[in-house]
Design a binder for these strands. Structure first.
Length: 254
DNA sequence: ATGGCTCCGTTGCGGAGA
């Protein structure tokens, strides 16, 4: 059982790459972020033709999330019932007995901006949603773009980024609060190479110089963490023509 | 040292991303 997530930065642009990647990596579940498509424009037929069920929640221009699955997608919940939010950033469903939560956590822009406060409020409401879902679903996985680099080793230049958006103390505290539920950062269950990142800026040769951040994560409930035998970041599609600025993260369960 | 790209929108160049 393989679970993956990928911020595709426009599914309209990236659909060929998503289909290619699924051919190369026939994961059971793929959570997409930043589809940037209204639901009437979602490429459902193409994805189903590739052998995947799909659930999606989109909006124009920004945000948008989707769950692709080889298995039936059940009990879908769009958005966070505990948080009134016009932005489409959260999608929850049950797949093969696992409660899968696909999240595009707000970017936050910069500390002390309205967007930053929205991010922290969004994270607090997500925490409450996780607590509620945990009661019903002991097997739970939260996958997506968190827009948080949890530790300094997840940042190419921690000194330059000190206190800034994506690494600030309140954001990291919100991430730690999710770990305390408890959930486990699948990537850190295993030995990983230094300077392992999931996002690289399009500018400044970010990818070539490996100036990146690890901000895309898969968190697993304890029962799933014990079943997890690998977690990797696939840098390959970041090297393709017209890439997303994010790479897919994959967790493999027994 | 600085900024460096990509995507969107009823196509202009500004907003957003991270």
């Amino acid at each position: 059982m393989k679970l993956a997530c990928w911020n595709v930065n426009s599914l309209k642009v990236r659909l060929p790459q998503v289909l290619q990647w699924l051919q190369d990596n026939p994961v059971d579940v793929l959570c997409l972020q930043e589809t940037k498509l209204t639901d009437d424009k979602f490429p459902q037929a193409e994805i189903e033709a590739a052998g995947y069920h799909v659930a999606f929640s989109g909006q124009k221009t920004y945000n948008g999330v989707a769950i692709l699955s080889r298995h039936p997608i059940l009990d879908v919940v769009k958005n966070n019932p505990l948080f009134d939010d016009p932005q489409q950033r959260l999608l929850t469903a049950t797949i093969a007995g696992i409660r899968v939560i696909c999240a595009y956590i707000p970017n936050g822009q910069a500390p002390d901006t309205d967007k930053y406060h929205y991010k922290l409020a969004w994270l607090a409401a997500l925490q409450q949603w996780l607590i509620e879902q945990q009661k019903t679903y002991p097997e739970l996985a939260l996958l997506g773009d968190y827009n948080i680099a949890p530790e300094d080793r997840d940042v190419y230049d921690p000194a330059a980024w000190l206190g800034q958006n994506l690494v600030s103390e309140p954001e990291r505290a919100a991430f730690q609060a999710m770990l305390a539920l408890p959930l486990h950062d699948a990537y850190r269950l295993f030995e990983q190479a230094d300077k392992s990142f999931s996002w690289w800026d399009y500018r400044a040769l970010g990818f070539r110089l490996n100036k990146g951040m690890r901000i895309d994560h898969i968190l697993l409930s304890p029962s799933l963490a014990t079943r997890c035998n690998a977690c990797t970041i696939d840098r390959a599609p970041r090297k393709w023509e017209q890439p997303s600025d994010h790479a897919p993260v994959i967790a493999e369960l027994t």
